[in-house]
Write a protein that binds this DNA or RNA. Structure first.
Length: 416
RNA sequence: GUGGGCGUAGCCCAGUGGUUAAGGCGCCAGGUUGUGGCCCUGGAGAUCGUGGGUUCAAAUCCCACCGCUCACCCCA
């Protein structure tokens, strides 16, 4: 038997209730904040993603890379920001008044070992504000992300923010960090030895007990920010405070993707066990230039839909169920079935969700099915009703029923 | 990529070497003549994840692979 590939899953109707709920909230809030939908393809030129992280980075190694029949090297979308920037450039969106605000819900693919909240195909809601360096946008994006998650009914969310500087000041900090760490080289965990050489900022993120002490004494990036970055970061914080968004400064927060500059942030749910980030993002003022555009500042976030669903379940948030059919049309006999078929069609044309009994089931089993479908009404058409051009309309919760003219069924149901 | 736990019908699960693999949920059909939800009765549904091995005999022991899961790594 075939199974869904590892790290992927089918989303069954019951699960879809969560998706509907999340997507509706997302679409509503995004338009409320002035973000417009833009969808990018599920695969892109492989080279597009080469810009989001250094060569040896995991996210590059974890990409689904393949060649199509023409030999072009492609990759399944690994994250949403680079494709959005590509589309921004490709369609000349920089010619419109800036900033451009876009959102998307797309699948993203990473070949990694699956576990809770980490899948080979997952889905992200992302929002990007491109073309303006205003710290008010950083705050707006953070507020939007926070509001989105809390409006879903999630509680205990906490936001962490940090600034990782810009091309001017970050290198100074990285130097200082390297210098500090080189004194402890032999005490570092194996992973950190690699980080020291390859991606020193990630040293701060290490969870190894033996490295904690070293991290504590490490220089903090906030001490190395250039005056512009400092001012920017302070403004972001001021805006957040004014907006009533509470946040925690975490000078150890760095993000895995290469393109981030200045503001970075994450949202996590409180609770025991691992705290996986529901969403994260930051400013990426260099990415568009790296992709071949003019220097263009931008800021955005992405939230993981599957992770949000996990959090909703953990917190026992009740989500609205998917709509149920209103009427079930049962029938007895060939002639009745014909009438039932016509009635169901008429009901549907009038916007009344209706289900027709199919097969040759007994009335008993038809009603059983109606019951399990949780319909409000069952319409029963038998020999007698066919002869009289009537139908029995049964209210499934009260069990009351009456015989009415067939032609009136639709309008009777419409009123309820 | 590293390490731990697990893998019995659609779902939950009993069964740790020996006749036709148990139960619950769900599903299907009945409980007289055209009526659901409760109850009762019956039925269908399992190559016991896959492939090897040990043994007279394996769902039960061993190995490999696959998958699930948890932690690490990384990330949404």
């Amino acid at each position: 038997m075939f199974k869904a590939p590892r790290g992927t899953s089918d989303i069954l109707p019951q699960e879809k209730a969560y998706w509907r709920y999340i997507e509706e909230k997302a679409v509503y809030l995004c338009q409320l904040y002035g973000y417009q939908p833009l969808n990018t393809p599920v695969f892109e030129d492989y080279q597009l993603f080469a810009h989001i992280a250094p060569d040896g980075a995991d996210i590059i190694k974890e990409m689904y890379v393949f060649e199509d029949r023409s030999g072009q090297k492609l990759a399944l979308t690994a994250e949403g920001t680079a494709p959005i920037c590509r589309a921004y450039l490709e369609h000349g969106l920089f010619n419109l008044p800036q900033p451009i605000k876009l959102y998307y819900i797309i699948p993203a693919f990473r070949y990694e070992r699956p576990q809770a909240g980490r899948y080979r195909q997952h889905h992200q809601l992302g929002c990007e504000a491109i073309g303006d360096a205003d710290p008010a946008l950083d705050a707006e994006v953070i507020e939007l992300m926070y509001r989105f998650l809390s409006s879903l009914g999630l509680s205990g969310l906490f936001i962490e923010i940090n600034s990782i500087g810009c091309r001017q000041c970050q290198p100074d900090y990285v130097e200082a960090l390297k210098k500090y760490y080189s004194a402890y080289r032999d005490r570092l965990c194996p992973a950190c030895k690699i980080r020291l050489a390859r991606n020193p900022l990630r040293l701060l993120d290490c969870k190894e007990v033996s490295c904690q002490e070293i991290i504590t004494g490490a220089p903090k990036i906030t001490g190395y920010l250039c005056s512009e970055c400092q001012t920017h970061f302070q403004s972001v914080q001021k805006y957040l405070t004014e907006l009533g968004i509470s946040y925690q400064l975490n000078h150890r927060l760095v993000r895995g993707l290469d393109y981030y500059t200045r503001t970075v942030f994450e949202v996590k749910p409180e609770g025991k066990g691992v705290q996986i980030a529901l969403g994260g993002g930051g400013r990426y003022d260099n990415l568009i230039e790296e992709l071949g555009g003019k220097p263009t500042p931008a800021v955005g976030f992405a939230a993981g839909i599957e992770r949000i669903i996990i959090a909703l379940k953990n917190q026992n948030v009740i989500v609205p169920t998917l709509p149920k059919p209103v009427a079930y049309v049962a029938c007895l006999g060939t002639q009745a079935k014909l009438e039932a078929t016509k009635l169901v069609s008429r009901l549907r044309h009038q916007g009344i969700a209706a289900i027709q009994a199919t097969g040759d089931k007994s009335l008993k089993s038809q009603l059983r099915q109606a019951n399990s479908l949780d319909v409000k009404y069952t319409v029963i058409i038998g020999e007698k009703e066919v002869a009289n051009e009537t139908a029995v309309l049964r209210d499934m919760s009260s069990g009351e029923q009456k015989t009415v003219p067939l032609s009136e069924i639709a309008s009777l149901l419409e009123k309820r």
